[in-house]
């Protein structure tokens, strides 16, 4: 039987705190960080370093047994994986934001056909569908905040932890879609077939948080 594979973000805001969490559990990669799949100081546990947004996919298909990634990307993927525990870091909100001088004060009053720039098209669509507002979604891969000022979109759906980036780009949050933190997620079948190993690793990671 192969060891457990734990998928972790290879960069971005969750990388640092994730590696600290592993460090506290005495799990260190043995290879340098350009190696995607690395053995660790904990026998039987390998680290898979990939993009945070891809982690739910690897875990859903059981390529990785466990993963640490944001609730935001898990929800956006729409894939069914177990959320075993909250890691307590990576706190942020997925918010709807408009230009500071906009007359709109709440997402529910945005007009039909509003153009929304976002990295989260699925959650955005679902949110506005529930409000009964048809929006035009413009999917971007980053620097979403700039879109309204340049006239690409009327508003954005983006992550915000302090609100400062929004403010600096002349935006104001008018509603929250989701509150996100980093979660320890798990493949559904692995949870059942390798329960003891997974519980052991979960305790090691979460107890030490």
């Amino acid at each position: 039987m192969r060891g457990l594979i734990l998928a972790v973000p290879n960069k971005g805001r969750l990388r640092g705190p994730t590696m600290e969490l592993l460090e506290r559990a005495n799990i260190r990669p043995l290879d340098d960080d350009r190696i995607y799949l690395s053995n660790t100081t904990l026998e039987g546990v390998q680290l898979l370093s990939i993009r945070a947004a891809d982690i739910p996919i690897y875990v859903y298909y059981g390529i990785a047994d466990l993963g640490i990634t944001g609730k935001d990307v898990v929800a956006e993927s729409g894939l069914e994986v177990y959320e075993l525990a909250d890691t307590g870091f990576g706190d942020c909100n997925l918010v709807v934001a408009v230009k500071s001088d906009s007359k709109y004060w709440d997402p529910s009053v945005l007009p039909q056909g509003t153009k929304v720039a976002t990295e989260f098209p699925n959650l955005t669509k679902q949110f506005f569908n529930d409000l009964g507002i048809q929006v035009e979604i413009i999917t971007l891969r980053g620097a979403v905040e700039i879109a309204p000022i340049l006239g690409l979109a009327d508003c954005v759906v983006d992550l915000s932890s302090t609100g400062r980036t929004l403010e600096r780009n002349g935006l104001r949050a008018i509603g929250t879609i989701l509150r996100s933190t980093a979660k320890l997620i798990c493949n559904k079948v692995a949870y059942k077939t390798r329960h003891e190993q997974i519980k052991m690793l979960e305790n090691l990671l979460v107890r030490n948080k």
Binding site: M1, Y60, G62, K188
Partner: peptide
């Protein structure tokens, strides 16, 4: 129904 080693039910 699931089988060890197959990631989806």
């Amino acid at each position: 129904i699931f089988l060890e080693g197959i990631g989806l039910p």
